[in-house]
Amino acid sequence: MKQFQYIRPATQQSVLDAITKPGARILAGGSNLIDLMKRGVTSPDKLVDIQKLPLKGISKSTGNVSSISIGALELNSAVAENKLIKEEFPLLSMALNAGASPQLRNMATVGGNMMQRTRCTYFYDTAMPCNKREPNSGCGAMEGINRMHAIFGTSEKCIAVHPSDMCVALAALDASVEVKSKKGTRYIPFTEFHRLPGETPQLDNTLTTGELITRVIIPHNNFAKNSYYLKVRDRASYAFALISVAVGLDIQGGNIKEARLAMGGVAHKPWRLKAAEQFLKGKPATVANFEQAASLAMQGAKSFGHNDFKLKMAPASIIEALSNAAKLS
């Protein structure tokens, strides 16, 4: 490990002052960044530990549209067990509890979860090519071992997936991300926070240098009663998703008033299924409709060999998750 500077500022202003250069990295729970540093994947000049900042707290605000705000330093385990979250957004609680292991959830923060990097093995192994780690070195996964890899939104440069479960639920819940920098505050819709690889797979998200995630805000919705997070994985815990599906349905009198659907394990970002949501709007909650929604959702999917099974597992999982959310079974 190369030498680096470590600071732990006490105020938000001093954090913002410290992160103006690309070599500085923010350290929160450290459950991913420290691993990346140990493996030589990332070598920051400066670690800015933000644990002293008052970025905790889960609170409800009642305005025109009520919403719940979650501080960026809230622990994954604390959010998952929070009473407000369990009542209003059980989908988020389910997704968080499906992620990682209890030990990791007790360390990982909400902001850090959003910033975690792909688990693609070629990204982690510095002896292998990877365009995300080292632009223009090639993609090891494309013709390599790609069982865990993407089927949507891939590029010639990268077929990695974003590993988070929490983010899949937040994408489905239309959350927004509050970001601060020396220029001020801005809000990024959650679905626009992460990005597709395109020509620049080294960029995971749309944050720019000098920005700090401070809160995630989830607007009120009516999905609490009919939510489900399905995660299909190789073992019952501590495994990344082969496929995951976040579903929120607003069902009134057997008809779907609104639907929210997002998938994990399929793309470089949480993958919202807008066409399927649109299709389900106003339709009865039936397996036949779910099947049609799933087939709409799969349009444009492309696999790479080891992950061919996802073309079958993904629609099956969408139908299963929708059926569970609608309490059909």
Partner: peptide
């Protein structure tokens, strides 16, 4: 240990 799976308690 993350990618080479052995059973964990929940399995």
């Amino acid at each position: 240990y993350a990618d080479y799976h052995v059973p964990i308690s929940a399995d």
